[in-house]
């Protein structure tokens, strides 16, 4: 079970108070994009063993979206950060590097 801390309201609770929103930091491709880009956006998702970045919503609490970094094998939560960003904060990435040297996720490392 994941224990997540909502960065918006500061509440720490287990995952049943939240709702997962899938992979984080997607680049949206809409009308006018190439078929390949659109297909990637619609269907192609990461399925990593290890470090993963996701969107979550505090559905039973403040109702806000946020991001979480976690490990898919150990369910360790490295940290959560606000939704209003296109990439994980530097200090969180440094923290993950300490715990999981050599991790990669899409074009992040």
């Amino acid at each position: 079970m994941l224990i997540l801390t909502c960065p918006v309201c500061g509440v720490t609770a287990e995952e049943t108070e939240f709702h997962g929103g899938g992979e984080a930091h997607l680049t949206r491709h809409g009308p006018g994009s190439s078929d390949d880009d659109f297909e990637d956006y619609l269907f192609m998702r990461e399925n990593p063993r290890g470090v993963h970045f996701e969107r979550w919503r505090h559905v039973y609490g403040c109702g806000k979206w946020f991001h979480a970094a976690r490990c898919t094998t150990t369910l360790e939560v490295f940290g959560t950060y606000p939704a209003q960003t296109t990439e994980p904060p530097k200090d969180l990435r440094a923290k993950i590097s300490k715990k999981r040297p050599g991790w990669t996720w899409k074009d992040l490392a």
Partner: peptide, 10 residues
């Protein structure tokens, strides 16, 4: 004040 899940409802 805590908003949360009570059994199956908010």
């Amino acid at each position: 004040l805590r908003r949360t899940r009570l059994a199956q409802v908010p």
